[in-house]
Amino acid sequence: MELPLLGQIYLPISGVEIMGWKLILLGFTVGVIGGFFGIGGAFIVTPALNVFGFPMVYAIGTDMAQMAGKSIIATAKHSKFGNVDMKLGLIMIIGTVIGIELGATVIMCLENVGNADVDVVVRYVYMVLLFSLSGYMLYEYFKLTKEGAVENKTIFDVGKSALALKMQSIKLPPMVNLTVSGFTISIWVILSVATITGFVAGFLGVGGGFLRVPALIYVIGSPTRVAIGTDLFEIMISGAYGAFTYGIKGRVEIIAAVIMLIGASVGTQFGTLATQYPIMLKA
């Protein structure tokens, strides 16, 4: 007897046939990763859907849709733990929406230009971004481990980077007092970071979390837990906007997004809970 949603499914909007269990497993995996790191996980889902046979633009749109739904679950959980700075999140949304619209417009232009292979362009941009980011974070990890060894203690948070301190010292009004994050910063810094990450999000079809969380930590200077929770709040809103934009353009496979969301809803619970254990270990 074939279980519903686990067997072969035909998706008529994109014209793709796929095994349902692949979508559920993919959703579960990004749910765990997303809940723990505070990211949408689209840098995994979009390429994975493309490998499964989705045309790239449909992979982007479908992922935006599932990300919106998954982020609701994760944000609610992080909010209970006091990790969501709504003021910061709402300001970032303004910049992100502008950036996403610009990014989505560029990708649609590329799709309409006969010579441009959108899949190849997006894949190369992904590779450059992911390698650069992972390289920097590895460097940061080894630096902190060394500092911890010298001071003979385990470091639980990166603290404020030199760049973040410089950004917070910019006194361009209006200034915003972020009580949850614990500092005051110029609104223009927040908007600039959000617009740039939003553009990348719209272009690559990602939530931008894998860029925005490091940006919140290293450029704006948020504590790591707050960066995670706040980013998920923002992804919830910007994901919904991205899903709407790609929906209007006819590039969302809703059935696939719902199936992935079922898996993600379970995974998110585990990922989110795991973020709180370092705090309990510290005590």
Binding site: G69, I72, G247, G250, I254, S265
Partner: peptide
């Protein structure tokens, strides 16, 4: 498929509403 073809704006609305409702439902069940 019909909605996607004939009414893109409503398709966009249905997309967002479906994800929101399913997301909230799954969060509650979890």
């Amino acid at each position: 498929v019909e909605l996607n073809k004939n009414s893109p704006v409503w398709f966009g609305v249905v997309t967002v509403l479906t994800m929101a409702i399913v997301g909230v439902l799954m969060a509650a069940i979890a």
